[in-house]
Design a protein around this nucleic acid. Structure first.
Length: 352
RNA sequence: GAGUUGUCCACAUC
């Protein structure tokens, strides 16, 4: 069983669901019995791959084999339903859990809150918060709870409410994670509230939380939405002052800002800075650069960025080709469009 | 060996 479980881990890590299922078949063909963790790992893999039906099939099989699902199993199920945008099913899984007398823990409640968040059911997320507090043995919100709630409000466009949650987090004894601060900064970006976002940066330091790259990336994005490209670039210096090296994550955001503001030459400069720092751009970095170039009618440069992308050993994605195809459309380059389209197909990219 | 929160890039939707 240990060996098959290791094999399963490998498949799940590679996001190879079919392989993962084969491991189950193999294991059974050898007369072995999968245990709860094994099934839960499978359920989690389905969850990440968005395969809800398969997820329930595995759950069913688990029951057939008399393996009792644990709170982890239900957590993975609820999350899988949520990722697939199936809020009723998520609560359905929760109901099954209760009926089996499995006690919901904090992770379960956090998962439910996140499920509501993804479905845009902000009020319901707060209902879950009340539910957890009024359990027989009350479950206290933690940093994940706060992060999920802030994100729920931000997604629902309820920035004021997000701020309330954020403030109550800071008033509580719960120490926020960088995610919570990033979420509130992101909420600011909707309103172009650069000043408040920078205040959050001060809070974070006051609160003794170590900012990470994603946090700075969010700050850069807010500066971009406030159309302040100088501020966006200056965030890099703040990072360095905090002893954090700018990496591909922040450069990717910066590239996005340049692109949104039509600054294609600055975008190219960012690209050069990245290469001289020996940072590997991500696909989204390349996409942002191609967008900037296409909007500036620098189509040939955009094409050479595409070949850089491939040369770096990365795979262009659906977005990469959408950007270029749209540029072809605007400039009447039908032949090039067809060629790109055929390339995309050959590379296994499905049109949406 | 298993479950939960954060950023950026095209399009579409509102």
């Amino acid at each position: 069983l240990q060996h098959y479980t290791m094999l399963l881990s490998v498949c799940c890590h590679a996001r190879d669901i079919d392989g993962a299922l084969k491991v189950l078949t193999l294991l059974e063909s050898r007369g072995l019995k999968a245990d709860c963790m094994f099934y839960t790992t499978l359920v989690s893999a389905c969850s990440k791959a968005g395969k809800v039906d398969l997820l329930f099939q595995i759950f069913h099989e688990m029951e057939l084999h008399d393996v009792d699902p644990s709170v982890h199993t239900f957590g993975a199920m609820i999350d899988g339903c949520a990722r697939a945008g199936q809020l009723p099913k998520a609560f359905g899984a929760y109901g099954i859990m209760i009926s089996k007398n499995v006690k919901p823990d904090r992770v379960i409640f956090n998962t439910l809150i996140n499920a509501c968040s993804r479905a845009g059911a902000v009020q319901r997320a707060f209902d879950v918060l009340e539910d957890m507090k009024s359990e027989a043995t009350p479950v206290k919100p933690d940093h994940v709870t706060y992060g999920a709630l802030i994100s729920a409000c931000a997604r629902g466009g309820e920035v004021e409410k997000a701020l309330e949650v954020y403030e109550s987090m800071r008033e509580s004894n719960v120490k926020g994670s960088p995610e919570c601060y990033t979420a509130i900064v992101h909420a600011c970006s909707q309103k172009g509230e650069l000043d408040y976002a920078l205040t959050v940066y001060d809070h974070l330091k006051q609160d003794g939380v170590k900012p990470d790259e994603v946090f700075f990336s969010a700050l850069i994005d807010v500066a971009g939405h406030s159309k302040d490209i100088e501020k966006a670039f200056s965030i890099l210096n703040r990072m360095k002052n905090d002893g954090i090296k700018p990496g591909p994550v922040v450069y990717s955001s910066l590239m996005g800002v340049c692109s949104n503001l039509g600054e294609w030459e600055k975008a190219l400069r960012v690209y050069e800075v990245m290469s001289s720092a020996r940072l590997r751009p991500t696909v989204s970095t390349y996409n942002a650069l191609m967008t900037a170039l296409c909007e500036a009618k620098q189509f040939d440069k955009a094409l050479s960025v595409l070949s850089d992308l491939k040369g770096a050993g990365l795979k262009p994605n659906q977005i990469s080709y959408s950007i270029l195809l749209r540029a072809c459309e605007k400039e009447g380059k039908a032949d090039q469009a067809l060629e790109l389209y055929l390339n995309a197909r050959v590379e296994g990219i499905k049109p949406n």
